[in-house]
């Protein structure tokens, strides 16, 4: 008798949409694998440097050594231990990516919700602004700005802020369209009718209902940020020496990829793995928050 079972399915169990989404995410194999690998890589990049025998900026006597028991990933032409450098670089790249994702998501959500909620001229103004930033040749502008940052000591945090200032539009667009459709729903009208303020409606009712799209676009930003930082580094800007990032290691390593391939492949593979994993996580989030699969009406 499956029918009555369906009708009484989990009546007492309080399950929020968030928890439902979490359950679906955990069941998503690739997303879970991606999460685990990302946590491991980030953990290693934070803890690893305390256990490696060399500092990332330390110059050893071993020049251009291939991987060995002494130097697991080999060394470069001036004696840097590549393992130490890759660990440090991963740490910086992930930090930059996280700061960029957090900051640009914040800006994007703010602008997207305000535009979508108020519509009218507010929306027109903010949307124009969004479009403007969207068409700016990001790399060119970043290059100019990163150049001056490099000269001022190449603070990674500044690089992150700078990148974030150009990446928020994608979030803003997603959030705006989500909010535009959400605000037409009866429960928003019902909130107005009980006297809730606009801020309250936006923060307590619109944003929580848009968590899915926000989370997905935030993860995609992580990849964009890592790649953008890499391009900057590739062109020689961004983090200043002796500090380093994955993009920078790949850029330097590429010039030596035929004679000392390890210099290119180790950081390259780490970069690739991080980006792939983040994409898996993004896929998992999208499926987890897919309302068409939430069973029952939202």
């Amino acid at each position: 008798m499956p029918e009555p079972l369906l009708l009484t399915g989990a009546p007492r169990q309080s399950r929020s949409q968030l928890r439902l989404a979490m359950r679906r995410f955990v069941r998503h194999r690739a997303a879970m694998a991606g999460t685990v690998v990302l946590v491991l890589v980030f953990g290693a990049s934070l803890i690893g440097p305390h256990f490696t025998p060399y500092g990332f900026a330390e110059l050893t006597e071993d020049y251009s050594q291939p991987p060995s028991a002494e130097h697991w990933m080999g060394t470069d032409a001036i004696g840097h231990d590549l393992l130490s450098q890759v660990l440090r670089a991963s740490q910086k790249s992930i930090q930059i990516a996280l700061v960029v994702a957090a900051l640009s998501t914040f800006i994007g959500v703010l602008i997207g919700t305000v535009a979508g909620y108020y519509r009218g001229w507010v929306d027109t103004l903010l949307s124009r602004m969004t479009d403007l930033v969207l068409v700016v040749p990001v790399l060119a502008v970043l290059l100019a700005a990163a150049n001056s940052i490099s000269q001022r000591g190449g603070n990674w945090f500044l690089v992150a802020i700078l990148i974030a200032l150009f990446l928020w539009p994608t979030v803003a667009l997603v959030v705006r369209s989500t909010v535009l459709s959400l605000r037409e729903q009866d429960f928003v009208q019902a909130q107005v009718a009980i006297g809730a303020s606009d801020v309250r409606i936006i923060v307590k009712h619109l944003i929580p209902n848009a968590v899915g799209p926000i989370a997905v676009s935030a993860t995609l930003l992580v990849v964009t940020a890592i790649l953008l930082e890499s391009s900057l580094a590739f062109l020689g800007f961004g983090i200043a020496p002796p500090d380093t990032s994955l993009g920078k290691l790949v850029a330097v390593g590429q010039t030596a990829s035929s004679s000392r391939p390890w210099l290119f492949y180790f950081p390259g593979v780490v970069l690739l793995v991080i980006c792939l994993c983040v994409n898996f996580v993004g896929d998992g989030l999208r499926d987890a928050f897919d309302t068409r699969r939430s069973g029952g009406r939202a």
Partner: peptide, 23 residues
């Protein structure tokens, strides 16, 4: 807005969509 819900209130037609699903 400060009067709504306090001095006057309204009940809408469709209760299925008048509540926020996430709270």
């Amino acid at each position: 807005r400060r009067r709504l819900g306090k001095d006057v209130a309204i009940v809408f037609q469709d209760p299925m969509t008048s509540l926020n699903p996430v709270h």
